[in-house]
């Protein structure tokens, strides 16, 4: 087991840590979405779910600590890896053509940074500073609706989710590959799973502000 810590010294060890924490955050995103999506069942349902989460007490804080730890390790590793990658080629090419990589893959550090900024803003809004319009601690449903009725808040949210989608587009398959879940047997669907799941998650999240703006949820 000690070798896990030893292997973190290499870039591949750091990528392994990013893949494991990335996978955990991926599941967090799915769980969070399953919570949020309950807005479509009405105020009672969503507020009931929020109250249930609060009632779990220590378990909730444990989960939050876990998510935070994954987030921090993911970011810390990505910074170390990015710096090392840039140092690996001090003198660049006069001409370089990309054959295979995607825009999403090349901009991971940027989309990731933007998502981080959004997460900070997101927590300010409903958890720490509670800057959301007309905030009330027990009516999550109303908080969400009042916020998303502001086009600016919805626009920022949708933009952040699209950036998140770009991050997951490459991240999902990259994570599988880094953990070794790839090979001839996986080939037919490995390029599909990441984008498909990323699209589903993003579509799920974006459906909420769209529904509020369209007046379906009020």
């Amino acid at each position: 087991m000690l070798a896990v810590l030893t292997s973190y010294r290499t870039l591949l060890g750091k990528k392994g840590a990013m893949a494991v924490t990335g996978a955990a955050l991926f599941f967090f995103l799915i769980g969070h979405l399953l919570g949020n999506i309950q807005i479509f069942f009405g105020p009672q349902h969503l507020n009931g779910y929020a109250a249930f989460l609060k009632s779990t007490g220590e378990i909730l804080w444990l989960l939050r600590a876990g998510v935070l730890a994954c987030f921090l390790l993911h970011i810390y590793s990505s910074l170390l890896v990015t710096v090392a990658n840039q140092q690996a080629r001090p003198q660049g090419y006069a001409t370089k053509r990309s054959l295979e990589t995607s825009l999403a893959a090349r901009t991971m550090i940027y989309t990731g940074s933007m998502v981080l900024l959004y997460v900070i803003y997101h927590l300010m809004m409903f958890t720490f500073l509670r800057t959301g319009p007309g905030y009330s601690p027990h009516d999550v449903y109303r908080n969400v609706v009042l916020s998303f009725q502001q086009p600016a808040i919805s626009a920022v949210y949708i933009a952040a989710m699209l950036l998140l989608g770009a991050h997951l587009f490459h991240g999902a398959w990259s994570m599988m590959h880094t953990l070794g879940l790839s090979g001839p047997g996986y080939k037919p669907w490995r390029r599909m799973v990441g984008p498909a799941v990323a699209a589903a998650i993003v579509a799920g999240y974006i459906s909420i502000p769209v529904a509020v703006l369209a007046g379906w949820v009020r």
């Binding site: 870039l11 591949l12 690996a88 080629r89 990589t101 990259s174």
Partner: peptide, 9 residues
């Protein structure tokens, strides 16, 4: 050497 970002290049 740098690390692998799974670009496929």
């Amino acid at each position: 050497f740098g690390g692998c970002s799974n670009h496929g290049e």
